[in-house]
Computed example of a mutant assay.
Amino acid sequence: MKANEEIPKTDAEIKNDVLEELEWLPDIDETEIGVIVEDGTVTLMGVVDSYIKKVAAVKAIKGIAGVRAVAENIDIKYGNAYKKTDKEIAKAAANALEWNSSIPAGKIDITVENGWVYLTGEVKWKHQKHAAKKAVENLLGVKGVNTNSLIIEKTVQPSEVTDQIVKAFERSADIEAKGIRILVDGHTVQLKGRVHSIKEKEEAEKAAYKAPGVREVKNDITVQFYPVYS
């Protein structure tokens, strides 16, 4: 076999890696989650007793080499002793946002419907939006968090955006910077190239959003497999 020639994993191999990863995760009963793999797309099914377990399972699977996409159909069902009313969840979410110093005060509104938390408003940075989501998704009774209406308002003009993003890539242990190309058009950054996992692709997007002046990131990075040398 020629050097640098890539051997794709079979769906069976990917499924085995997914099952092993689920078994490795703490606090997750892998027998509660079913796995289907088709052409590198992993579908997760089943029932767990907290939203954070669902998030942890999906995040872990995205880091597996060969996984091209993840579709989750995992339901959340709390036991009677852990059920919370929407009012109780809303109050806890408000407190969680207030206590998080990285989230601007008074900028985010909270609505809760049937256990789903909807965050609306405006923040200046992508990491603030992410922090708001993280702050409420661990709360007891939460079935999901929707941040689609939480808008990022950039006030800083782009300056040397490409250099800053490249440096961010180089600082990250989770990103192979040499496989990624960066194109800047006004406030929009387009990422191209190849990486080896969905996690690496998502980390690159997160890093690009942190650059001053960036309002939109078009993530056209392709997920491919690790090369095997012989």
Score class of each variant (00 low, 15 high):
residue 230 S to I: 09
residue 87 K to E: 11
residue 191 L to I: 05
residue 55 V to K: 11
residue 222 T to Q: 11
residue 131 A to K: 12
residue 69 A to D: 15
residue 201 K to T: 02
residue 59 K to Y: 13
residue 35 V to S: 07
residue 168 A to R: 10
residue 59 K to S: 14
residue 100 N to P: 13
residue 96 A to M: 07
residue 96 A to Q: 05
residue 156 V to A: 13
residue 86 D to P: 04
residue 41 T to D: 09
residue 185 D to R: 10
residue 208 A to E: 06
residue 73 N to Y: 07
residue 17 D to W: 05
residue 134 K to H: 10
residue 116 W to K: 07
residue 211 A to N: 09
residue 126 K to R: 10
residue 53 K to C: 05
residue 126 K to A: 04
residue 157 Q to M: 12
residue 34 G to A: 09
residue 58 V to E: 15
residue 46 G to H: 04
residue 119 L to R: 03
residue 20 E to W: 12
residue 43 T to P: 03
residue 203 E to C: 12
residue 157 Q to G: 02
residue 29 D to P: 07
residue 170 E to S: 07
residue 58 V to Q: 14
residue 74 I to V: 07
residue 91 K to R: 15
residue 1 M to T: 11
residue 198 I to S: 00
residue 65 A to T: 12
residue 79 G to T: 12
residue 15 K to V: 04
residue 164 Q to Y: 10
residue 125 W to Y: 15
residue 166 V to N: 09
residue 146 N to G: 08
residue 183 L to V: 08
residue 78 Y to L: 04
residue 21 E to V: 07
residue 183 L to R: 13
residue 79 G to M: 10
residue 150 L to I: 13
residue 188 T to C: 03
residue 197 S to F: 13
residue 56 A to M: 13
residue 118 Y to I: 11
residue 192 K to T: 12
residue 175 I to C: 05
residue 122 E to P: 08
residue 55 V to F: 05
residue 110 I to Q: 03
residue 145 V to C: 07
residue 158 P to G: 04
residue 80 N to G: 11
residue 18 V to P: 00
residue 37 V to Q: 01
residue 123 V to W: 00
residue 174 D to P: 02
residue 73 N to R: 10
residue 197 S to A: 15
residue 191 L to D: 01
residue 86 D to H: 08
residue 153 E to K: 12
residue 201 K to F: 05
residue 88 E to K: 07
residue 97 L to W: 01
residue 88 E to V: 03
residue 191 L to F: 02
residue 92 A to Y: 01
residue 6 E to P: 01
residue 159 S to K: 10
residue 28 I to M: 14
residue 168 A to L: 06
residue 23 E to F: 12
residue 209 Y to V: 01
residue 91 K to Q: 15
residue 211 A to W: 04
residue 96 A to P: 01
residue 163 D to P: 09
